[in-house]
Design a binder for these strands. Structure first.
Length: 461
RNA sequence: GCCCCGUUCGUCUAGCGGCCUAGGACAGUGGGUUUUCAGCCCAUUAAUCGUCGGUUCGAAUCCGACACGGGGCACCA
């Protein structure tokens, strides 16, 4: 079988949600492992929540992460268009076919009636479901009303009896009773399909072999299965992956956690590290490795190994992972990354000297500025008040010392001893006076890079 | 309320009936290296495997009930 997977984001948010990045990774790795295709389809059927810039941002984030797609709204492909808003005729055609076959019906109920109905059902402690009023309408009568231009939707006619079963690669067989499945709206009054019709039609037309999506979709899958059966189409393979969680175990949300991929980029996370961390969500490298590439994941990946338990997204472990990637990066690459991140080009020879001093201290690219910023500009403030007496002492010691590691260290120690203060204190004072901070890269090494003139100037009060 | 999914250290996980007095990683703690902070090295805390019952010579692993957590029940995806 030829493997074709897809992610189907909705352009309703600021950017790609990290949870969608997770499903994208799984879809991508699975498809590529078997030399299949990975597709992006934009599900922009909700006009009320549509966000103009969203699609571009989603594509840009996927690009940043390093998850390339074979077909999509920007790249095109044999099943174009890849935006649902451009495929309306397809859904309409299929919806009409379903009505004709008696598997769907026109519904003319108003919003008000539906709301009232639900309120009544709630009062009676009944599950909120469409009561089937329009199902009993004479088909000719329905056609007449449609022709007359009456506002209407198309509802799926779900059998009252029997069960609908599907096999999930991750979870095994899942069974639902048809009588508990609602007569879902599949085509809205504005002519746009709902998700349920949209996915089924497009997944079929685009020859998607494996539908890999979040577990939030499990309960609507029987509706999709019914649709496939009514249309006489082959049912794709399903794999419902767990949802990423907030620390309080609720579904990962922007209220409780940073969720936009661009946020991670802005914080100085590396795409490789983000992907690596996501890979460890509900899946584990067979050799127990924590650090591994997407290629390596591909080598060992199997959908069946996906854990069914929903993992908590732990940003601390992501930071650790990111630090591991920074530490393993060679100088040139790191310098390039930092330049791109800070939008500043700094002298190469200076950067080459600085990098070894700060690399082990950085967990994100953003930390370069707080760690090494003092190399490029004088501190604007101090983390604690300066002890002017000690600063003057340090300056004096430096004025005539040998400009090398031993010379500087000797000068400080001698000055401290003469004055009767611990050398440690003088070193700290020197650090604060020159860098503005109490912590940072090794002092003497840093001072050498800064240069004697610059230091004496910074020590001038 | 109804339906569905799930339940191993604080977190991510290994585990597929005996190798488990449950292994690794992150975080935490202590120590070493050190003029700071990191990094690195060493050590260490932490899970009666949700609970109860069953199957079995033997269960974290199989079965059942209950509890708890989550998801879904829209002309949102």
């Amino acid at each position: 079988m030829f493997i074709r997977t897809r992610i189907a984001p909705s352009p309703t948010g600021q950017d790609l949600h990290i949870g969608n990045a997770y499903t994208a990774l799984v879809n991508y790795v699975f498809a590529k492992k078997y030399r299949g295709k990975f597709i992006i389809r934009i599900e922009d059927t909700d006009r009320t929540r549509f966000v103009e810039e969203s699609e571009q941002r989603i594509l840009a984030s996927l690009d940043w992460l390093g998850i390339p797609h074979d077909e999509g709204p920007d790249t095109g492909g044999p099943f174009a268009p890849y935006r649902q808003s451009e495929r309306l005729d397809q859904y309409k055609r299929v919806a009409e076919e379903l009505v004709k076959k008696g598997h769907a019906y026109y519904c003319f109920c108003t919003q008000q009636r539906l709301e009232q109905m639900r309120k009544d059902q709630e009062a009676r402690h009944e599950p909120p479901m469409y009561d089937g009023l329009c199902k009993t309408l004479d088909p000719h009568e329905s056609q007449e009303r449609v022709k007359a231009g009456l506002s209407h939707v198309v509802r799926l006619k779900v059998p009252d009896e029997g069960t609908t079963l599907f096999a999930d690669i991750v979870r095994g067989e899942i069974l639902f009773e048809n009588k508990l499945i609602d007569d879902q709206v599949i085509l809205k009054s504005d002519g746009y399909p709902t998700y349920h019709l949209g996915v089924v039609v497009d997944d079929h037309l685009m020859e998607i072999s494996h539908v890999i999506r979040g577990e939030e979709w499990i309960s609507s899958t029987p509706k999709h299965i019914l649709l496939y059966q009514f249309l006489g189409w082959d049912i794709p393979n399903y794999a419902h992956v767990p949802l990423l969680r907030n620390p309080d175990k609720s579904k990962l949300s922007k209220r409780k956690n940073p969720v936009w991929v661009s946020w991670y980029k802005e914080q100085g996370f590396l795409p490789e590290a983000v992907l690596n961390y996501l890979a460890t969500m509900a899946w584990a490298h067979p050799e127990g490795k924590d650090i591994f590439s997407v290629d390596e994941m591909m080598k060992h990946f199997d959908l069946k190994d996906i854990q069914t338990t929903a993992p908590v997204f732990d940003i601390e472990k992501l930071r650790w992972t990111n630090g591991e990637y920074i530490r393993k990066m060679d100088d040139a690459k790191l310098i390039e990354q930092i330049s791109a991140f800070t939008h500043q080009i700094r002298p190469m020879n200076q950067m080459r000297q600085i990098i070894p001093l700060v690399r082990d201290r950085m967990k994100t690219l953003a930390e370069f500025s707080s760690l090494a910023g003092f190399f490029f500009e004088r501190p604007k403030g101090y983390e604690r008040p300066l002890k002017n007496e000690l600063v003057a002492l340090a300056k004096k010691a430096f004025e005539s010392c040998d400009w090398n590691h031993e010379g500087m260290e000797k000068a400080i120690r001698e000055a401290a001893e003469k004055k009767g203060v611990p050398a440690k204190d003088l070193f700290m004072e020197l650090r604060v006076a020159v860098t503005g901070k109490t912590v940072g890269p090794p002092l003497l090494e840093s001072l050498k890079i800064l240069g004697k003139e610059e230091i004496l100037e910074r020590l001038s009060l």
